[in-house]
């Protein structure tokens, strides 16, 4: 299909390495929101278990599929964000097919811009904009909060590595906020 449209990352795949701290746009993920039907929690949990070999995530946490390819983030009391390997087009179709008629699925890939912040000074940089106690956040923990007026999911991937998701329309402003924080502490 020679005519198909080409995707452009929201920040053109931006990366910056300042030594003690670095930031890079994450462009290889898809995101699908899964809503739990009223009274249908068990059915959804079973389907998730069957499909991915993991439970639904608890509040403030994530849950990773047995093959490591899918990370589920607690989003609301009845919604979960699934982070999956990036695909062309929509990921929601695959997820809906995989889990079946036990949830409501919404494509979210393009709602979000992903940034990965890493390095020894990542907490020093992020504490300039993030109200959460990152030092106490466990690896695998995920929260949603607000940074510089922008809603952000923050997930601790490792001691010195965080995944940040924020609205794609304000991607430039979000990057600016993160990058300035990094420059201010280096």
């Amino acid at each position: 299909m020679p005519d198909m449209l080409t995707a452009e990352p929201f920040l053109g795949g931006y990366t910056l390495d300042l030594g003690d701290v670095a930031v890079a746009e994450v462009t290889d993920i898809s995101i699908v929101s899964i809503a739990m039907p009223l009274g249908g929690g068990d059915a959804l949990a079973n389907a998730v278990q069957a499909a991915w070999g993991c439970a639904l995530p608890a509040p403030r946490g994530t849950s990773v599929s047995s093959d490591g390819s899918v990370t589920l983030i607690f989003s609301t009391p009845d919604q979960t964000l699934a982070i999956l390997p990036g695909v062309d087009g929509l990921a929601v179709t695959d997820v809906a097919a995989k889990l079946g008629d036990v949830g409501y699925y919404t494509e979210q890939t393009d709602n979000w811009v992903g940034l990965r912040a890493s390095g020894a000074k990542s907490i020093s940089a992020l504490e300039r904009i993030c109200p959460l106690d990152l030092a106490s956040m466990s690896v695998g923990g995920a929260e949603r909060t607000v940074m510089e007026h922008l809603g952000v999911f923050i997930m601790r991937e490792d001691d010195e590595r965080f995944l940040l998701l924020s609205g794609s329309s304000s991607a430039k402003s979000f990057l600016h906020a993160v990058e300035l924080s990094m420059r201010n502490v280096t």
Binding site: M1, M4, L5, A7, E8, F10, G89
Partner: peptide
């Protein structure tokens, strides 16, 4: 364009024959 997912609405704010066509945002520029 032969495969890029889209949503099409036949609605009109201008009063003309009009459509609104939506594609995932990363394809917006294209």
């Amino acid at each position: 364009c032969g495969g890029t997912p889209a949503r099409l609405f036949r609605i009109s704010f201008s009063g003309e024959l009009a459509f609104e066509i939506a594609v995932p945002a990363r394809y917006g520029d294209a």
